[in-house]
């Protein structure tokens, strides 16, 4: 049933700008990083070896990708839910023989899936840029696949509470200004969270910083809290009358 809902959801976002956003996000992030390299190329300190080049590159992209991810998830969640709000389609969808919790799960999964696609693209674009940079610097070495995947997917997983939160807010509120504001404020908070907040503050997790210097702790906490937020949201959605 969930697959059917997801396939219907994918059909509904046909010809919508959301796909463009999914592409533009990672493209913009890697493009910006490429621009930074291009501007500094002449007086840049040449990295000692390929490994150093990759780690510089990935941390640079990572720090740009983080705010993009946090604002992107709010916008994507709002757009996927907005399809129903705009044309008052909730009453139609929910009068169909589908479980309300599945409808909610469908919206969450669609948002998570679109962001996942963005992360895959981010990894791909990073790879292409890294290879190009390496060859133009004359540095040859193996591609740090693990690092690349960590850069692309750890923050995504650690941001799961916010994906769930934004999906929930966007689905239950007709006025999308509210969830978008929450998303923007969240992004700003997360920009400063790294150094100032204690480890338990979820806004710190997507940056993968904690006192144990173990990114997986942030990822684990994110996935766990994400699941909790998702379940709470789903419960509330099921209980509520449809507008």
């Amino acid at each position: 049933m969930l697959l059917r809902i997801l396939s219907a959801e994918l059909l509904k976002i046909r010809r919508k700008l959301v796909w463009l956003l999914v592409l533009a996000g990672p493209l913009g992030v890697v493009g910006l990083e490429a621009l930074a390299y291009a501007l500094r190329f002449d007086y840049m300190i040449r990295p000692a070896d390929s490994a150093k080049m990759w780690s510089d590159l990935l941390s640079g992209i990572g720090s740009l990708a983080l705010p993009a991810l946090l604002i992107g998830l709010a916008i994507v969640a709002s757009m996927t839910a907005g399809i129903e709000h705009q044309m008052n389609a909730w009453k139609m969808t929910l009068a169909l023989p589908v479980k309300k919790r599945h409808v909610f799960a469908g919206k969450f999964l669609l948002t998570a899936l679109l962001l996942f696609v963005s992360c895959v693209l981010l990894a791909l674009f990073s790879l292409v840029f890294g290879l190009t940079l390496g060859s133009s610097l004359g540095l040859h070495g193996s591609v740090p696949i693990g690092g690349l995947l960590r850069e692309a997917f750890y923050p995504y997983l650690a941001a799961m509470p916010f994906i769930a939160l934004q999906a929930w807010l966007s689905v239950t509120m007709h006025n999308q200004a509210v969830p978008l504001t929450v998303g923007i404020v969240g992004m700003i908070v997360s920009l400063f969270a790294g150094s100032r907040f204690p480890d338990w503050v979820p806004y710190k997790w997507p940056a993968l910083l904690n006192q144990w210097h173990e990114p997986l702790y942030s990822v684990g906490a994110g996935v766990a809290l994400g699941l909790v937020v998702f379940l709470v949201g789903m419960f509330e959605f099921v209980r509520k009358d449809v507008k």
Binding site: L11, K12, R14, R15, K16, I83, Q86, M87, N88, A89, W90, K91, M92, T93, A95
Partner: peptide
């Protein structure tokens, strides 16, 4: 076994 149309029509305008 029920088909319904509640108030003003619901549709996805871009489709």
């Amino acid at each position: 076994k029920v088909g319904s149309l509640v108030e003003y029509p619901s549709y996805y305008g871009h489709l």
